[in-house]
């Protein structure tokens, strides 16, 4: 009896090991032209999924193969492993939304030494380890626009607070710096930034932080949350506590997550860029760098399919970048058109 059990289980282990072989061997070995890879921050993120959809769309328009990967947790360690695997596969380009600005540098430089195009987008890496960055929107513009939006919502005077993602999130910190910069303008003398809270992109923590903000500052009039989980959590708290109209929410968020709260007025308007377009542009940029059409130097221009023509410009950190365009404003008028899309 025991022997039978052991044999059966051993078979299960072997099957578990071999099962992927049966499933994946079909497509794995045939060579199809160029292969372009994209690595998002972590798996199961709708923004990332749409971004990768756009990337695949661009790459497949040219009959190339798109490889879409993401580690199961948003860590630099996970991305390093994936990059190593991609280098071993000798792909033509690696697009990446980086979990860390500096930590991917050594492995990405290895990739560049192996003549692989490195084109980060969404979240950047340092200039030494990239060819060109595909920037979704100018961080300065995002920071300033958000403060201006909040200014309009509170009618020019009052308390505002910021609810960010993790305290280590590169993008968010950059945007917050620009928000603080914008607040130095004498126009905002009556606007008081009372606190920057961190919800860690966790639902429960973001909700608790928002509740604490509302309790500690009963006169709070606006919360700016430049992250999808944060803005949805803040809007939820405002909705549940019947504070719609008293406390306004704005920031950056996915239309699908925010449709409910834009419709009910908790969040009068918010911004985001189109992740599909961002992925699409990354795809075209990757292909242009990989084929040698551009080198990533300032002044290079290339054609990006349905998005038209783009030029490489100088980035703030000393490297180069391609700018997707202005962030898009979502409000009660247009949200229904977008909530199904992403």
């Amino acid at each position: 009896m025991r022997k039978v059990c052991v044999t059966v289980l051993a078979a299960v282990v072997i099957a578990a090991v071999l099962a992927p072989a049966m499933v994946f061997s079909a497509g794995a070995r045939e060579e199809v032209g160029e292969r372009h890879a994209y690595i998002f921050k972590n798996t199961g993120n709708p923004f990332g999924e749409r971004l990768m959809d756009g990337f695949a769309e661009a790459v497949e328009e040219h009959g190339h193969q798109a490889i879409l990967r993401a580690p199961d947790q948003p860590t630099a360690e996970g991305q390093i492993q994936i990059i190593e695997q991609l280098i071993a596969q000798n792909v033509d380009s690696i697009g990446i939304s980086a979990n860390d600005y500096d930590a991917l540098s050594p492995v990405l430089r290895n990739a560049m030494n192996a003549e692989i195009a490195v084109v980060p987008s969404d979240s950047n890496v340092n200039p030494e380890s990239r060819h060109v960055f595909v920037n979704q929107a100018d961080p300065e513009q995002i920071g300033r626009t958000l403060i201006q939006g909040a200014y309009d919502m509170i009618g020019g005077a009052g308390q505002i607070a910021i609810l960010s993602a993790t305290s280590t999130a590169t993008n968010q910190n950059l945007w917050i710096e620009w928000m603080q910069e914008e607040l130095k303008d004498s126009r905002y003398d009556d606007v008081e930034l009372v606190r920057i809270a961190y919800g860690d992109d966790l639902r429960d923590k973001s909700v608790a932080e928002t509740e604490a903000l509302l309790r500690s500052y009963p006169d709070l009039e606006c919360i700016i949350a430049p992250t999808t989980v944060g803005i949805a959590a803040a809007s939820l708290v405002v909705t549940d506590n019947d504070l719609i109209g008293d406390v306004h929410i704005t920031g950056l968020g996915l239309p699908s997550e925010m449709a409910e709260y834009i419709t009910n007025g908790a969040c009068p308007f918010m911004y985001l860029w189109n992740p599909i377009d961002l992925g699409y542009l990354s795809g075209y940029t990757s292909m242009a760098v990989a084929s040698g059409e551009i080198t990533g130097a300032v002044g290079d221009t290339f054609d990006a399919g349905r998005l038209g023509s783009f030029e490489v410009v100088e980035a703030m950190d000393g490297g180069t970048e391609v700018l997707l365009g202005e962030p898009f404003m979502f409000d009660a008028e247009n949200i229904d058109d977008w909530k199904e899309v992403y």
């Binding site: 289980l9 992927p20 990967r69």
Partner: peptide
């Protein structure tokens, strides 16, 4: 990873491997 299996499938495979291997040693 070389054949670009997604992270979620990898999670399932490694979890299954862990349980199955312990099961074997336990029955033995």
């Amino acid at each position: 990873g070389l054949i670009n299996v997604s992270a979620q499938v990898l999670l399932i495979i490694i979890g299954g491997l862990l349980i199955a291997s312990v099961l074997i040693s336990n029955i033995r």
